[in-house]
């Protein structure tokens, strides 16, 4: 099973520069070298500082969060940084 990736906002333009605001981007990543979110970003050619909110299976996560095949990762760009973040904690792995 792959890792399922959802991109939002301007991050979608990394895949298609002319993408419309209503089109969703869903990717399936098969890459044994991807262990954590930070590896996934490298694989997708996205800089860490281009990303704000990260969700893994709908749970708020950080760059060090480990991910496995079959899981869903959602990535939001810097200019979508709104969140009542004091209600959320970033899940990380050592």
């Amino acid at each position: 099973m792959p890792i399922y990736v959802k991109l939002f906002g301007d991050l979608r333009k990394k895949i298609d520069p002319h993408i419309s605001g209503t089109d969703s981007v869903r990717l399936e990543i098969n890459a044994p070298e991807v262990d954590r979110i930070s590896d996934l970003l490298k694989k997708l050619n996205i800089n860490e500082n281009e990303v704000t909110h990260i969700f893994v299976n709908g749970r708020y996560a950080g760059l060090k969060k480990k991910i496995q095949n079959g899981e869903t990762v959602a990535l939001f760009p810097r200019n979508m940084a709104l969140l009542y973040k004091w209600y959320f904690t970033r899940e990380e792995d050592e």
Binding site: H53, Y60, A74, N79, L82
Partner: peptide, 14 residues
């Protein structure tokens, strides 16, 4: 950029 509606996709994802 998006107004308060920036939250639609974020809270949906949460």
């Amino acid at each position: 950029s998006y107004g308060t509606s920036v939250l639609v996709n974020i809270i949906n994802e949460a």
